[in-house]
């Protein structure tokens, strides 16, 4: 087993809450077994910022709400053989996509920012300024699920997915035998 080259995994958190990354830790002691099979390349877990080489699996948490998300996602698509969307935000846009509900407006983005930084009933912003530092990436007109920006090979549903579901998916992908999930693992009612 140890003679085989380890599979390389990269991960990224786009417009999400980092909860799915935390859920990776819910696979508990199986993490030790997993680490015998894989090594992490670009990922917030390793703090590697750029791909060091091509990866076998890319795991994406979160959807795309700004231009940097799109850039990172496209970079992952170019550098990973298999791209896996993890969690509701990556798959459907999730909570951030609630701003897509502002649709009957001529300027939905302005309306959204004003609600968040100026007009909202619980907003405390004495400067009455909407943040606009040049280092901030430009927002997209709406929040996009990852599959609308690049092709996604697999999706792991959940908010966040349970450790079991994540382990089942990763183990399946690594052995090349991933066939989808057992029904009871992806029921949420």
């Amino acid at each position: 087993m140890s003679d085989l080259p380890k599979a390389r995994i990269a991960t990224a958190s786009l417009a999400g809450c980092f909860g799915c990354h935390m859920a990776l830790l819910d696979i508990d002691e199986r993490l030790i077994e997993l680490m015998k099979l894989v090594e992490f390349d670009r990922s917030p877990l390793t703090d590697i910022k750029r791909f060091t080489r091509r990866c076998d699996i890319g795991i994406i948490e979160g959807g795309c709400c700004n231009e940097e998300n799109v850039h990172v996602l496209q970079d992952f698509r170019r550098n990973c053989d298999i791209l896996v969307g993890i969690g509701q935000c990556a798959i459907m846009g999730g909570l951030p996509a609630m701003r897509n509900a502002i649709m009957h407006s001529d300027e939905p983005l302005r309306e959204c920012l004003e609600e968040a930084y100026i007009k909202g009933p619980f907003t405390q912003n004495k400067t009455q300024i909407i943040p606009n530092d040049p280092a901030l990436p430009l927002l997209l007109d709406k929040v996009y699920p990852c599959s609308e920006v690049v092709e996604i090979d697999y999706q792991i549903p959940g908010c966040a997915p349970t450790g079991d579901v994540i382990y089942e998916a990763l183990a399946g992908l690594l052995s090349g035998r991933f066939q989808g999930f057992e029904r009871e693992h992806i029921r949420f009612d």
């Binding site: 231009e67 920012l113 007109d141 709406k142 920006v149």
Partner: peptide
Amino acid sequence: DRIRATFDIQSAISDARVLA
């Protein structure tokens, strides 16, 4: 590169360019 041709980044950020 398996990137979707239907997603147009230029039109997606055009509102934000104007606002920012």
